[in-house]
Write a protein that binds this DNA or RNA. Structure first.
Lengths: 156, 156
DNA sequence: CTAACTGCAAAAGCTTTGCTTTTCA
DNA sequence: TGAAAAGCAAAGCTTTTGCAGTTAG
């Protein structure tokens, strides 16, 4: 447990957001100006393996880190990429039936909610319009697309 | 709708897997040897915006693509990264309560199951051991880690 | 003392983008 | 013929890695 590792852990625990490695680096640097980004990456990885923090693989391009190692879900803004905890109970039984039907041995699941955070929502209402090209979810249609191949009907 | 775009769409629709852009490229190249990877990326993006295919942002580093545009869930092997459809009904009501409690306007959710695919499961059983450093999920403990900060108790 | 770790810089992996030429409608 | 798209290559962004020097226990 080096000084660098300790500061990284304490820094993450002080952050209410779910920061990326770069964001942790920016804050840690205030205390350890000579630390390198590589060290931050290595230690976040190590701390995650030690079970002291949690590495989050949500949508978007960046990996994020969470001092809270308990299982819980997240909610991410499709406009500004902010991430908050989702106050939803963890589903305990959702994995059970999958073992038999798929042949997989299920070990976990990840649930992420998407939406507009309060700030972006307010701005969107103010402007009465919001570009839609940020939305990551597929169209809401439950029917087969007009030109989808008939021979490969979906099970869903 | 250029020849390239048409071939890319048909190729994706012929693939039972959930290929990355690179994998689509490899197959498309058999028909259009002079196509460039950039064109594949651009067209997969365009087709996704047109709602003709779905871009998947699952865990792992690669983005994947799915000809099936209906909402459904996926199951990913933590060992070999293979992705299959998860035969689970889409949860219609899970987003409802979040609007009020979080201030977010929820627009969707993403659920991904993790586990060992049948092939990797068999190999693991054969070897009676499997390295655990591929597992992406946090430890199963529901209790507070021994040295977690008491002042920041989790809600979960 | 030595195994683990740091800082630095280079490289790797995936994706996007600028630019010129080609193609589609 | 003009707008959209292709091909090619370079750049971008995030993350990992090699190495020589440093530190913790």
């Amino acid at each position: 447990m080096t000084r660098q590792r300790r500061v990284i852990l304490e820094t993450l625990r002080s952050m209410p957001t779910h920061p990326s490695a770069e964001e942790v680096y920016e804050v840690v640097r205030r205390e350890l100006p000579r630390i390198s980004l590589g060290t931050v990456y290595r230690n976040l990885e190590t701390l995650s393996e030690l079970g002291k923090i949690q590495k989050l693989e949500l949508g978007g391009t960046l990996k994020r880190f969470d001092w809270n190692t308990c299982k819980h879900y997240h909610i991410r803004c499709i406009n500004c990429d902010r991430v908050d905890d989702a106050p939803v109970n963890v589903m305990a039984d959702v994995e059970i039936s999958l073992d038999d039907t798929t042949g997989y041995r299920i070990t976990g699941h990840r649930l992420e909610f998407l939406g507009l955070c309060p700030d972006c929502l307010e701005k969107a209402i103010g402007r009465r319009t919001l570009s839609s090209h940020h939305v990551a979810e597929p169209p809401d249609s439950a029917e087969r697309p007009d030109d989808a191949p008939v021979s490969k009907a979906s099970n869903f």
